[in-house]
Design a protein around this nucleic acid. Structure first.
Length: 675
DNA sequence: GAGTTTGAAACT
DNA sequence: CAGTTTCAAACTC
């Protein structure tokens, strides 16, 4: 996140501004949420966020991972929808729309809201310290693994302090609400969010949309529905639920938690419902979230689960939970995931909207048996989100080991031999990790970088865009035709790209050929438009400055437009930028209208991987300097044609693309509460 | 569950 | 950087 933006979050906006905003008025009319309510939430929050030990694997690319994941969470259609919801909520202009969502989700529990607000307070000035104390202070935060109850109490106290502090500071409630949307922007939050979202990707991602958050909640939590919930709460529920605490850290301790989970009475789980078990298992995912591979796999696994939602699936997961899955007994995650599972019907409906299911359907067409097989394999796998390796010779200290590669310790279910990837050998693990990173700094970086295209228009076009998600290095398949999980691209659910050196690529998520073709087409398109624009510009210049010697090349006045051009250049992104993408949904229909989708995505793709922090800036009137620095295509700039009807459809599309991009800005939690 | 295939990771 | 070896997951039977 951009520092300046962060500051915005932490800096309370003048109350007057809020008072003037429709959101403020709306919220003002809502029955105030009493601090007391935060107590139950606090517990959940606590169990999720404060039980994690320090991360074992500290990668110099931590932030990178974070960001990558964060943006990946935006990659799918569901995510985009979710973010759209966020957008709506954030936007004061669309309060009405947001309220509609609230109605849909009014069953959302206060707990969620309180959790969110609690988190918000973390970012709130004057309360951050307290929160930090609560979070970091062992006595306050309760060491992980401790009884949730006690720890939750501690946290409750801490949060109460925060609450009080906030009251003293007079932090507007609106601020908190608005900040809710931004919570996951903090490093931990974003990471956790990214992890979980990634893990739960496809099916669970729909949470973000706030479409089906609720029923389950009401059933399980018996929390009165409140129509007067802050708008931001609904769309942000997933975030609020997921982002609390460092999941990465947790993942390293999943074994412990998993054991604890086993101890949890069945009643507990059943109270929450069968789905809970599943969700719990998915909660593990976050741990896996450390590695994109794992994430991607998990995403797919989950997807399959949801697609084939049935008793069997639940059963499998349950058994998995009960036995081997290192699951945390974290209510929040369960709840969140429960929500996703609680409404199979809806889920399926949502799935149908997403391309991914289709792909899997294709893949599963082989036979029903295959389906089940896949499910069986994937579920444990996704639970296996907490990777389980079977290493014999690598001692789980090489990237061969999925656990190690995922940045997680091996756990009980692993079948590894002479495993050194254990907390006991932390030093060894870290040393080895360092060594590997010295060799390849990105060794532990996400293999698949998903673009934040989700924030973009989630039209089919977008999903067809080949560049939505890509494997960072691409695959090298020779015999599998990129149709089996041998292929990392396929395994990650992304199409092959220019980075791939595969032969006979038939990747169901997107063939390399199609990708290249799309690039070529886009290039031609761009060239055409560039020429046209140049021509138009020349004419304009001549008209405006008949005596001017100015060349027809880009002119200063149009710089701001030029800024976008590089992004719009679809075929000039450096290889790494092709990785960015949104994966699952990408590539499926390469023959579709890619132009707009590409246009929309390009900007994000360009910055998603390493420049995610500046994305918001770029999206919103990014200074040309920044863009230039970011864009490798800066040299290829075409003069924008303003107000020219001759600009042609291409230009028009671009304009539209920009509009869409701007519209998506709020999806990345806007730092400006007034937005 | 054993054996084979595959491609990434590691090594030279 | 390319070729080879090692490795473990994915796959097949």
């Amino acid at each position: 996140m951009d520092n300046s933006q962060k500051k915005k979050i932490e800096t309370p906006t003048p109350k007057s501004k809020f008072e003037d905003s429709p959101v403020f008025n709306y919220i003002n009319n809502l029955s105030p949420i009493e601090a007391v309510r935060s107590i139950p939430t606090v517990q959940t929050f606590n169990s999720l966020s404060f039980t994690s030990p320090p991360p074992v694997f500290t990668s110099p690319h931590a932030s990178f991972h974070r960001e990558s994941r964060f943006f990946r969470c935006h990659n799918s259609v569901e995510r985009s929808k979710a973010l759209e919801s966020l957008d709506r909520s954030v936007s004061t202009q669309e309060v009405v729309v947001a309220s509609g969502e609230v109605d849909l989700n009014k069953e959302a529990t206060l707990e969620d809201q309180e959790e969110e607000t609690s988190c918000d307070r973390v970012d709130s000035p004057g309360t951050g310290d307290i929160v930090t104390q609560v979070l970091l202070d062992p006595s306050g935060g309760a060491p992980r693994g401790e009884d949730d109850g006690s720890s939750s109490q501690d946290v409750s106290v801490g949060l109460r302090k925060i609450l009080d502090a906030q009251k003293e500071n007079g932090t507007p409630r609106l601020m908190a609400d608005a900040a809710e949307l931004l919570v996951f922007r903090s490093p931990n939050d974003s990471e956790a969010f990214g992890c979980l979202v990634d893990k739960i990707s496809s099916s669970e991602r729909r949470f973000c949309a706030g479409v089906k958050l609720t029923k389950h909640r009401d059933i399980t939590k018996d929390v009165p529905a409140n129509d007067n919930q802050p708008l931001a709460v609904v769309p942000n529920q997933l975030v609020s639920n997921l982002h609390r605490g460092s999941m990465r850290r947790r993942c390293l301790d999943f074994e412990v938690l998993g054991k604890r989970k086993k101890d949890i009475p069945d009643d507990d789980q059943q109270t929450v419902g069968d789905n809970k078990a599943e969700s719990s298992s998915k909660c593990v995912v976050p741990g896996i979230g450390l590695h994109l591979n794992a994430i991607a796999m998990a995403s797919r696994g989950i997807k399959i689960n949801t697609i084939h939602e049935d008793s069997t699936s639940v059963e499998i997961q349950k058994s998995f939970l009960g036995s081997t899955t290192p699951v945390q007994s974290q209510d929040i995650m369960r709840e969140t995931l429960d929500q996703a599972e609680s409404e199979p019907g809806k889920e399926l409906a949502v799935e149908e909207e997403t391309p991914k299911p289709l792909v899997f359907e294709e893949l599963n067409q082989d036979s029903l048996q295959k389906k089940k097989q896949v499910r069986k394999v994937e579920e444990p796998g996704e639970g296996d989100s907490c990777k389980r390796c079977n290493c014999k010779k690598s001692k789980c200290l090489k990237l061969y080991c999925e656990c190690f590669a995922a940045g997680v310790y091996c756990i009980e279910p692993c079948s590894c031999v002479d495993c050194f990837n254990r907390p006991i050998h932390e030093d060894t693990v870290l040393a080895t990790r360092k060594q590997i990173e010295s060799r390849n700094p990105l060794a532990f970086a996400p293999k698949v970088i998903r673009n934040s295209d989700s924030i973009m228009e989630t039209s089919d076009d977008a999903s067809k865009t080949p560049a939505s998600a890509r494997h960072k290095r691409g695959c090298n398949c020779k015999k599998s035709n990129c149709l089996k999980k041998y292929c990392e691209c396929f395994q990650s659910g992304v199409g092959c790209s220019i980075n791939c050196r595969c032969e006979g690529c038939k990747n169901a998520f997107g063939k390399k050929d199609a990708y290249l073709l799309a690039i070529m087409e886009s290039k031609q398109e761009e060239d055409l438009s560039t020429i046209q624009q140049n021509s138009d510009l020349s004419k304009e210049v001549e008209q405006n400055h008949p005596s001017s010697d100015q060349p027809s090349t880009p002119l200063p006045p149009y710089r701001h437009m030029v800024v976008h051009q590089p992004f719009l250049s679809k075929n000039r992104l450096p290889p790494t930028q092709f990785f960015l993408g949104a994966g699952s949904s990408s590539f499926r229909k390469p023959d579709g209208d890619l132009s707009q989708a590409r246009i929309e995505k390009k900007p994000l793709e360009t910055v998603a991987e390493d420049k995610t922090e500046i994305m918001p800036e770029i999206l919103s009137n990014t200074p040309i300097t920044t863009v230039k620095a970011i864009s490798p295509n800066s040299k290829r700039v075409s003069p924008p044609h303003i107000g020219s009807s001759e600009s042609g459809s291409i230009l028009g599309k671009r304009t539209n693309g920009r509009k869409l991009i701007l519209r998506s800005i709020p999806a990345f939690p806007s730092l400006n509460p007034n937005q």
